[in-house]
């Protein structure tokens, strides 16, 4: 075909392209559209020079501006931390028991504490802080070592039953598997299971076993002792399960919990924040509640 053809119906030139007899009309593209195309190409070249663009084996080209999303993030974090400097200092220096009286500081502590909790505590205590068998539920009002802000702070700082921190507290439940006979254990387990319904801990056959082996730590009234981390056996909460088998197993083994000290690992404000957070979860006790009551 020689020369452009004009479509007789529309009077428009064709481009000369024809598919199965269907011809493409030449409706010319505006020239500025072409310029915009060139402009975008040019833009991409400038971009490639200025910004990280080409992937390499383990990295990418850096770009002459030296920009990176990580550096930008670090900068933003630094900016936020700078903005938080005052409130962080306030949190470090205020008596923890007084923080709940300051809504703004308390709000900051609760949010910061929630973040710390998710990172460092939820592995054992659960994301919702409800715990698991053997890992205390932090939402309820039963505390092995005390539930005031100060008590919780001490527990978080030093942990439980660890060699890293000399101030860590140790609970000392012995294993009765070899001391007591199977019969005695099953009588004692049944006895302990009936304590929450109001039974006198020292009554009956189980009562005499209780007085002999248990009341030293758990008390004559069975309400436990927070100085030794001995749980209250008369409440509705059982850390290791309340079936007959679980209670018997606890008597045989003498279970205990382990918690790492966070004193050296987290900053002072993080420790205080997470203690305040746990205290506010629903079971926190008001300041001044003596640990041994």
């Amino acid at each position: 075909m020689s020369g452009p053809r004009v479509d007789p119906v529309t009077g428009t030139e064709t481009t000369g392209h024809s598919w199965d007899g269907i011809e493409e009309l030449n409706s010319p593209l505006p020239r500025w559209w072409l310029w915009i195309f060139y402009a975008t190409v040019l833009w991409s070249l400038v971009y490639v020079v200025l910004y990280p663009a080409w992937p390499l084996i383990s990295d990418s080209t850096k770009g002459t501006l030296g920009w990176s999303s990580r550096a930008e993030l670090a900068e933003e974090i630094a900016m936020v931390e700078e903005g938080q400097a005052d409130v962080r200092r306030a949190l470090r220096e205020t008596d923890p028991a007084l923080v709940p009286g300051d809504p703004e500081l308390h709000g900051f502590a609760l949010n910061a504490g929630a973040a710390v909790f998710r990172s460092h505590c939820s592995q054992c205590h659960g994301a919702g802080a409800a715990g698991f068998t053997g890992y205390p539920n932090l939402l309820d009002d039963a505390w092995l070592w005390g539930g005031t802000v100060e008590d919780i702070l001490f527990t978080v700082r030093h942990g439980i039953r660890n060699d890293e921190d000399p101030d860590a507290r140790w609970s000392e439940m012995p294993s009765f598997g070899e001391t007591l006979s199977d019969g005695e254990i099953s009588v004692l387990a049944a006895h302990v299971r009936s304590l929450p319904s109001g039974l006198d801990p020292l009554s009956g056959q189980g009562g005499s076993l209780f007085a002999e082996h248990c009341s030293v730590c758990h008390g004559d009234d069975g309400k436990g002792d927070r100085l030794q981390g001995a749980p209250d056996l008369t409440d509705a909460i059982s850390l290791y399960g309340d079936s007959e088998e679980s209670v018997a197993q606890s008597i045989i083994v003498g279970p205990f919990g382990v918690m790492p000290p966070w004193g050296g690992r987290l900053s002072e404000e993080e420790i205080r924040a997470v203690a305040l957070y746990v205290h506010a979860l629903g079971g926190g006790e008001p300041a001044g509640t003596a640990a041994d009551e």
Binding site: G3, P4, E13, N26, P28, L29, P30, R31, W32, L34
Partner: peptide
């Protein structure tokens, strides 16, 4: 029916 202009029309057009 088809005429044969000497100069083919460009694919791009400047704004008039």
């Amino acid at each position: 029916m088809s005429s044969q202009p000497t100069e083919p029309q460009s694919l791009y057009a400047a704004r008039v």
